[in-house]
Structure formats: structure tokens, C-alpha cells
Deep mutational scan, measured.
Amino acid sequence: VCQVIAMYDYAANNEDELSFSKGQLINVMNKDDPDWWQGEINGVTGLFPSNYVKM
């Protein structure tokens, strides 16, 4: 598990995705897919595009 910072706002398009705002910290749970990582914010988990965040 690592933390990343959102570089942009992201609004989920599907129920399994994670919405976040620019500057939010996201706990990364899974990086099996290079493009879509699984993350957690405040107890909510979902997929998000890895190119929207930085380490």
C-alpha cells in the first residue's frame, strides 16, 4: 500500500470507480493493471486512472 496525490479532479463513470478532487491523498491498494489502480479514500474503494495521480 502506498499513497499518491491526485493531480486532477476525477468523476467516476461507473459504480466500481473512485471519484476524487485535485490534491486529495489516495491510498493505493492494487496496481495489477498499469492504467487503472484500485484505491481507497475515507473508507471508499474503487478504480481510478493511474495517469491522474503522482507519487
Rank of each mutant, 00 (worst) to 15 (best):
Y10H: 06
N51Q: 08
S21I: 10
D33T: 12
L25N: 10
S50P: 13
Q38F: 09
L25Y: 07
Y10Q: 02
D9L: 02
T45L: 12
V44T: 10
S50T: 08
A6V: 02
S50H: 04
G43R: 09
S50Y: 06
T45D: 07
D33H: 15
V28H: 01
N13H: 15
Y52F: 15
D35S: 11
L25Q: 07
Q3E: 15
V1G: 05
I26S: 00
M55L: 07
N13W: 03
S21T: 12
Q24L: 04
G46L: 02
V44F: 07
V44P: 03
P34S: 13
Y10D: 01
Y8M: 13
N13C: 10
S50E: 03
F20H: 00
M55T: 09
D33A: 09
V28R: 02
L18D: 00
N13V: 13
S50R: 13
W36D: 03
F48W: 00
Q38K: 14
N13T: 14
Q3V: 11
F20E: 00
K31N: 11
V53D: 02
N14W: 04
E15T: 15
P34W: 05
Y52Q: 14
I5M: 05
M29E: 13
I26F: 08
G39F: 01
Y52P: 02
I41F: 15
Y10T: 01
K31F: 11
M29W: 10
N27K: 10
G39A: 02
W37V: 01
D33W: 04
N13D: 11
W36C: 13
S50F: 05
N51E: 05
E40A: 09
L18E: 01
C2I: 06
S21W: 06
W36Y: 10
P34A: 14
D32Y: 08
N51W: 06
G39Y: 01
W37S: 01
G39L: 00
T45S: 13
I5P: 02
V28I: 14
D33I: 07
K31T: 15
V1A: 03
G43L: 04
V4I: 02
Q38I: 15
M7P: 01
L47T: 13
S19K: 05
V1I: 15
D33L: 08
D35W: 05
D9V: 03
M29D: 08
L47H: 09
I26V: 08
E15D: 09
L25F: 13
T45Y: 06
V44A: 13
N13M: 13
V4P: 00
E15N: 06
V53I: 15
I5F: 12
K22A: 12
V1R: 04
G46C: 02
G46V: 01
K31E: 14
T45M: 05
A11G: 12
D9C: 04
L18W: 01
Y8T: 06
Q38E: 13
N27Y: 08
P49V: 01
K22W: 03
L47C: 04
Q38G: 10
I41L: 13
F20Y: 02
V53C: 10
G46D: 01
G23H: 14
V44K: 09
C2T: 06
F48R: 00
F20Q: 01
M7C: 12
K54H: 09
Q24I: 08
E15H: 14
V44H: 15
P49Y: 07
G46Q: 00
S19L: 02
